[in-house]
């Protein structure tokens, strides 16, 4: 991929990702409501929420927390830019981890017990999904001989043919990353209130708005990983990939509405077992047939 397409990719991501992410969140809420037999909010509701949060009086526990939350947004956006510029998969995974750490540090810095439990659970969640994400990167390398996203999307083979197990494993941990039940331990968009609001308890007004928009940016490139499994040099593959992305998101909504929250032990055990059985075995098979 040359410089021009990289720049177009970054610009499109910067402008379109929040719009698409917000819209996706709105559709999510609408579908969830319909699944529960309710009418549901307007599709543009997440944007109303976002602008409302900007209008509220700013209350912060301490100034440093806003700094960390801002860093969270910036590193999420940088991660997405690397992704849509066709950058290195490993670099993307590491900046994503760094971004998540900033959110955890922001929650810790508020000293609120609820936010701290939320932050601890967020760390546990990261422990849960991180192995699978790394296995995914290795899988792409074994198939394409490169960690570069620009090489993966232009390769002659479709990664899903060689990585079905890793794909399923990734969809599994996507539930954690998208903060859906049963693994929305650290914070959630629903009224589970045993932690008040977990990670985001102490963030209000503009700070909360920054977190919302960061999540929209994040969700878009998380679906981008799903896209990678299907995109290749064939002309029709991007269409298939986008359809699979939407289907995956629908599946996550379905799971979200069908499960209650589980304990963190189950979250870690389940995601590690999935990473080992689906992910690692897939890697082994790939290693022996190649």
């Amino acid at each position: 991929m040359n410089l021009a397409t990289s720049i177009i990719g970054i610009a499109a991501y910067l402008i379109l990702a929040p719009l698409a992410g917000g819209l996706l969140a709105g559709i999510d809420r609408k579908i969830s409501a319909r699944m529960q037999g309710r009418f549901g909010p307007p599709v543009l509701q997440p944007f109303y929420d976002f602008f409302k949060l900007l209008e509220k009086e700013p209350i912060t526990v301490n100034k440093v927390q806003d700094f960390y939350v801002m860093c969270f947004l910036i590193f999420i956006v940088i991660t997405g830019c690397f992704f849509f510029a066709g950058g290195d998969l490993l670099l993307i995974i590491f900046t994503l981890t760094l971004a998540s750490i900033f959110l955890v540090v922001a929650a810790f810095s508020s000293n609120s017990p609820y936010a701290q439990i939320g932050a601890e659970r967020e760390l546990l969640q990261m422990m849960a999904y991180e192995p699978m994400v790394l296995i995914m990167a290795v899988g792409f390398y074994l198939v394409n001989g490169s960690f570069n996203i620009s090489d993966i999307v232009t390769s002659p083979v479709m990664a899903i043919q060689y990585l079905p197990g890793i794909f399923l494993g990734f969809v599994f941990i996507l539930t954690i990353k998208l903060r859906k039940s049963p693994f929305d331990l650290s914070m959630s968009h629903h009224a589970h209130q045993e932690l008040v609001k977990g990670l985001t308890t102490e963030f209000s007004g503009k700070t909360m708005a920054v977190i919302e928009i960061a999540h929209w940016y994040e969700n878009i490139f998380l679906l981008g990983f799903v896209y990678l499994f299907f995109a290749n040099a064939l002309a029709w593959s991007p269409v298939l990939a986008v359809v699979v992305c939407l289907a995956t998101y629908f599946l996550e909504i379905l799971i979200d509405n069908n499960y209650a929250r589980m304990k963190w032990q189950i979250a870690i055990n389940a995601s590690w077992i999935v990473a080992i059985t689906l992910g690692f075995v897939n890697l082994l098979i790939l290693y022996f047939i190649s």
Binding site: A33, Q193, T200, T201, S204
Partner: peptide
């Protein structure tokens, strides 16, 4: 009654 159609969310957090 579904008040979420007006965008109303029941939050447990006074700061939100």
């Amino acid at each position: 009654y579904d008040v979420e159609r007006f965008g109303i969310i029941n939050t447990g957090n006074p700061k939100h």
